[in-house]
Every structure is written in structure tokens, then in C-alpha cells.
Amino acid sequence: MSKSQVAMREPTYFVLASLLDRPLHGYAIIKHAEELSGGRVRLATGTLYTALDRLTGEGYVTVIREEVVNGRTRRTYALTGAGATAVRAEAERMAAAARVVTDPAASARSAAGSPAAPRARRVRPA
């Protein structure tokens, strides 16, 4: 099973989504994720870096710049090709799941026309 078919936790999803337009540093990711989610996802610092460490390890996110701001290192993170594919696949999966409720007829048609989608499984918490 490819990684793109694995269900993501919401913070992970919004970290990746916030990097879709442009690379960002830590606090900017927190702010952008909050904007994108309409204020619902407010990442705490520890949660963000746990997610970033994991996503960097999986090759979804990479550090593209290191600079010193106020005497402290600041890293800018960018989405990799694999990361962009993963977040888009997750968006598709959630959209398909949403259609089951919002448009049951179309959902049933597409399910009949295509082989059964692999069931998403939960992975390590981010």
C-alpha cells in the first residue's frame, strides 16, 4: 500500500496544505494552518515540530533555507513532490468520503464503476 492512501491526522494535513502555495517557517505554518482551517486547527509548537520531524523523515517536507533571526536559527520548510502528491491524495479521499453523504447517488455510481478503494488505515499520531 502506498503512503498516499494512508489517512492523515488533521494537523498533519493542514501542515502540508499550508505549504502548498509557498515555503514557510515554523510560526508562519501555525498561522497559515489556522487561516486555512478557519481558526479550527491551532497547532502548538511541540505538535508542529513533531509533525515536521516525521514529515521530513518521510520525505514529504524538506528544509530549503536556514537563516538567523534575532540571534536564533530559523528554518524554512517546503513541500516535496511526494508531499504534494500525498496531500492531494488525502484531499481526494476526503472529498470522496464527503460525497457519500452530500451526493449519495453519484457516490454509488462511481463506486460501482471502479474497483473498491483500499480502506484507509490510521498510522502513528502526528
Binding site: G26, L48, Y49
Partner: peptide, 12 residues
Amino acid sequence: HGDELLGTMLEA
């Protein structure tokens, strides 16, 4: 990563 986390915590 300590400096980076500290910077983000202070900004937050």
C-alpha cells in the same frame, strides 16, 4: 532544533 523551537514559542 532548540533555537528554532524557542523562536516559534516566543512568536506564539
